[in-house]
Design a protein around this nucleic acid. Sequence first.
RNA 1: GGCGAUGUAGCUCAGUUGGUUAGAGCACCGCAUUCAUAAUGCGGGUGUCGGUGGUUCAAGUCCACCCAUCGCUACCA
Length: 681
Amino acid sequence: MHIRNILVTNALPFANGPIHLGHMLGYIQADIWVRFQRMQGHTVHYVCADDTHGTAIMLSAEKVGISPEQFIEGVRLEHHRDFQRFLVDFDIYHSTHSEENRELATDIYLRIRTAGKIAMRKISQLFDPERGLFLADRFIKGQCPKCKAEDQYGDNCEVCASTYAATDLINPRSTISGAAPVLKDSEHYFFKLPDFADMLKEWTRSGVLAVSVANKLSEWLQSGLQEWDISRDAPYFGFEIPGAPGKYFYVWLDAPIGYMASFRKLCAEKGLDFGAYWNEGASTELWHFIGKDIVNFHALFWPAMLEIAGYRKPTQISVNGFLTVNSQKMSKSRGTFIMADTYFRHLNPEYLRYYFAAKLGQNPDDLDLNFEDFTLRVNADLVGKVVNIASRCAGFINKNFDGMLSATDSQPVLTAEFQRAAAEIAEHYDAREYGKAMRQIMALADKANAWIAEKQPWAVSKTAPQSKEVQDICSVGINLFRLLMIYLKPVLPQMAQQVEAFLQVPALHWAQASTTLGSHRIGTFIPLMTRVDPASITAMLDASKSSLAVPVPAEVALLSPLAKEPIAAEIEFPDFAKVDLRVVKILHAEHVEGADKLLKLTLDLGADDKGQTVQRTVFSGIKSAYQPQDLIGKHTVLVANLKARKMKFGWSEGMILAAGDGKDIFLIAPHEGAVPGTRVT
RNA sequence: GGCGAUGUAGCUCAGUUGGUUAGAGCACCGCAUUCAUAAUGCGGGUGUCGGUGGUUCAAGUCCACCCAUCGCUACCA
């Protein structure tokens, strides 16, 4: 057999929010393909990473009050956890904010520049004078110039659907600071994409893309490509452009390079040959699985970059459509904006893997997750049809034959029919026509059930429970079931594992479809999958509704604290000096019985002039945001000369500083090294 | 506005290059069965194939226009 060497990538999720079921569609699609290829005996490296750069990330980190590096690492771990839970089995889950990526992005940029494909020119953009940063359209809101609707984004109006430049907005303002933006010039770096138009026209038609996707791209190709702006001005979270202080690579420049970076790290860990997968003329395969929203980046910019930098281009770009839930766009208020984490708390990920597989083809059509259909289909197909075959046969084998299967196959014709199907099912998997594969597998499951019904082993068992006939029938049933599980394993890896344990066989792979089990002892049957409980779906939708937090950054900015509560009247320095702020260490923290919001804190102010340790007891309304044990040992700031106040639960000797609106509360803490008792000025 | 995708039975979807009475699974109804996680088997379909108008001996399948839904419209993540 010809062994294929394939590098598979999944689109890099943006590190600005949690993974939801819409994301999951593309990852499950790719994971099934990877698992299938591996079962065939091919070599597959499967890489992904978080896409971590850009203004949005910078602002999100700022909002939470941590560095972008800390922010993206937290998100990365959460994303990776979600993928693992859904059995998406990456070899590595890296980050675009990595040394590998910095080196590769820098190197590729320099190769592009050396080839003369970088242009520089001044452009004029709206700029937030308060925050000192240039504003992308989505960070500007104002009145639509056409229909005068309020509160419209800088590129188009959601009310009258007209498009315009952000500079046309009436009364524009920055959604970050609320300030009126001003026009400002800046030098930008451009990638000369039009020079690649001929290559791209040919390449996009060379079979690397579905025809409908190529058609879509020809829209751009025919209307003429424009130069691509690849630089952003500081402040920007990303990689600085070599030889251009204060200029950074636009996030989409280094994002696809993240595929290479992730693989480079994997190569270092496993001793693989990086060049064998990326050098021009490489004989290996490179597959990108992406969503249809990012086709232009992967099928226009990316191949052009690769070509000029001397790398190979992708073998195939597999594009998936969007996910709708109950025929509608995912909606937070309807509870259909479902996070992977929320789903995982209520339902088995393999249900979703099967449901997606049953409806996926190679075309980038949108896929509807209809929960009624989901429930019926998963229950009928997986539990009612497939698992039922094992369930109804195993009892006889376990009870009457001590788990032993017949030595020979009494129905070679039927078995051969199931085995022959392997080739066609494999073709469907390979072509990413999972829906067709699932239909064929379920048709076989129907056939197996009908055959067992015809043979009626339970009737034979009544008169001759230990007869060879009963053993033969049920052995055939178990073997047919085993074949079906081989075919389903790419979709249901966890269930396949349970089946391997039940059958007492090593890990199933595709080639074993040509064999059967004879004179083999199987284990006791255990329920392999439980039915979807509609109550769990209701609970999940409710949970999604109530946790609809996770607001879009721009919206948060609009409701900025500053906008809600403007800065207070001016004071003189002596006014400020009256307030004596001191660093304190939290010695102890505990819940207060009967108090809804309060925690009781014991604070250490260090030693006074007599060497006596000074402590304060403070009641603080931070119960909703902090657990007492998490506070102990931490430093914070105390208003030390505030008059003590008698509260219901005792005297509170001062206040500690915290930021927040009552819902989210953040304690103010000094940087490391501050000593209790130190005055804050 | 422009462009694209989709629109086939109650639900989810198949329908290859136009060719006999348009299919599958689920749901539903009836019967059988009771080994199996109330699972299984057999039987049951009068669907303006989104609409209108064309091309053709023949159109779900090709063409035009229209309607609906969704999406895209590159310095947007």
